[in-house]
Amino acid sequence: MSTSEIATVLAWHDALAAGDLATLEQLSSDDIEVAGPDGAGQGHQALRQWAASAQVTAEIGRLYVHDGVVVAELAPAGAAATRAAAFRVVHDHVTAVFAHDSLEAALAATDLTEADRAD
């Protein structure tokens, strides 16, 4: 487990939630890939557009990490259902983030398991 990868994802999520695009870009590679149910894009321009439309109200729950991949469970405030995001982190920069409808879907997409859970 890499504390650095988890710290990068937590800082990235905090910057997104705060609408701090400058920090979000600093924590992201120049060619970052962002994808979700509404489409995908690449680069800081796509990240800015995606972040501007994102309404982040979710708290991070369980975290899973293995070999540069971090899956974060996202628990929206007041909602029973959780979502998740899968991140690729290289040299303390997020190079990709993919939104998933569930934690199970994110784990399946990344081949992570309960054995990769960070406690």
Rank of each mutant, 00 (worst) to 15 (best):
G19A: 09
I6M: 09
L103F: 07
D111T: 10
L103T: 10
R117Q: 15
E104G: 11
L27P: 02
A40Q: 14
T113A: 03
E33G: 10
Q26E: 09
A105E: 12
A81K: 14
G78W: 10
G19K: 12
D20E: 05
E5I: 03
E59N: 13
D14K: 14
A96H: 07
Q55C: 03
A75G: 00
E59M: 10
H100R: 04
Q49T: 12
R88C: 02
V69N: 04
D30C: 02
V69D: 01
V34Q: 02
E33Y: 13
D20T: 03
S2Y: 03
S102C: 08
G78L: 07
V94H: 03
Y64F: 15
E114C: 06
A81N: 13
A75S: 11
A72M: 06
T57C: 00
V71F: 05
A58P: 00
P76M: 11
D14C: 00
A115K: 12
L47F: 05
W50R: 12
L10T: 09
A79N: 09
A108V: 01
Q55S: 13
G61N: 07
T23R: 15
T3K: 15
G43Q: 04
L24A: 04
T3A: 14
T82N: 11
P37G: 12
A52V: 00
D31S: 14
A46Q: 03
A58R: 07
D92G: 04
A22V: 14
D38Y: 10
A77P: 00
H93G: 00
Y64T: 04
A18R: 15
S28K: 10
D116L: 08
A17W: 01
A108G: 03
E33H: 15
T95W: 04
G68T: 08
P76T: 10
P76I: 09
A115W: 01
A86C: 05
D38P: 00
L74E: 06
D116A: 11
R117C: 07
S4H: 10
V94I: 14
A7P: 00
E104C: 00
V94E: 00
A99L: 13
A77S: 12
A106W: 08
A79V: 09
Q49D: 12
V90N: 11
S102R: 06
G36P: 02
A18Y: 02
A51E: 05
E114K: 11
Q49N: 08
A17Y: 01
D119H: 13
T3I: 10
A77W: 02
A81F: 08
G19H: 09
D30P: 11
D119N: 14
A80I: 12
L103G: 03
A81C: 01
L10F: 00
A75M: 13
D31F: 03
L16M: 15
G43C: 05
R62T: 12
P37Y: 08
L24T: 06
P37L: 11
M1R: 13
T8K: 06
A118W: 15
L27H: 08
Q26L: 07
R88D: 03
H91M: 05
A22F: 03
